[in-house]
């Protein structure tokens, strides 16, 4: 099982300038912010289920950028249909990364469906995202980097990670207007 925070930090440690990262609400946003404040990131703090559709819209509008969306299994399970939408309107620059700890850790570690019979990689593949795979070892970080920067998307990576609470690392601002305006400074041509 993977230490999610170390995984996200490593993923962004040698970041290329053409990468924009969106994160889903809760722990995924704290993980992203733990890698350091960066205008090229946009972290959701609410609107559960909307981070992945947002990333798809961004990937369509900015085909010359690489777009990675990092979210949790809880957020992903709330909008599984978006995988079908992504598959049928494919953005070659989009990588979906699901940090799957099989639980709602922030609310007391209640199990999600992936703790039971549900398999997100199979759902991604069944939705039509052909380049979908699961990783369980920290060392597979380099494989994910290759997917983000080199492989033809859309891709889905399910990162099986430990279900342990981590410190909350807040973004630059909780104000949505401040956050989106700052992020958009990095999406202008």
């Amino acid at each position: 099982m993977i230490d999610r925070r170390a995984f996200v930090q490593k993923l962004l440690s040698e970041r290329q300038d053409n990468l924009r990262v969106v994160s889903g609400l809760g722990t995924s946003t704290w993980d992203l912010m733990s890698a350091g404040d960066d205008k090229r990131n946009f972290g959701f703090i609410g609107a559960m289920g909307q981070a992945v559709p947002f990333a798809l819209g961004l990937s369509i509008a900015k085909p010359d950028l690489k777009i990675a969306i990092i979210t949790g299994d809880g957020d992903m399970l709330m909008s599984l249909g978006i995988m079908s939408t992504i598959a049928n309107h494919p953005s070659s620059n989009l990588t979906l990364i699901v940090m799957d700890n099989e639980s709602y850790v922030e609310t007391g570690s209640q199990p999600t469906a992936t703790a039971g019979k549900t398999n997100l990689e199979l759902i991604a593949k069944g939705s039509g995202i052909e380049n979908s795979y699961t990783i369980k070892n920290q060392i597979d970080n380099s494989k994910v980097l290759k997917t983000i920067y080199e492989e033809e998307g859309p891709s889905a990576v399910i990162v099986k990670c430990k279900a342990v609470p981590t410190p909350l690392i807040f973004p630059y601002s909780f104000d949505g207007v401040t956050a989106i305006n700052r992020f958009m400074e990095t999406t202008k041509d």
Partner: peptide, 16 residues
């Protein structure tokens, strides 16, 4: 339909 809200928002963040 709710996908369309996030999709529109992300597209606008990218200038579309």
């Amino acid at each position: 339909e709710e996908e369309g809200v996030g999709l529109s928002s992300g597209a606008w963040a990218g200038g579309k």
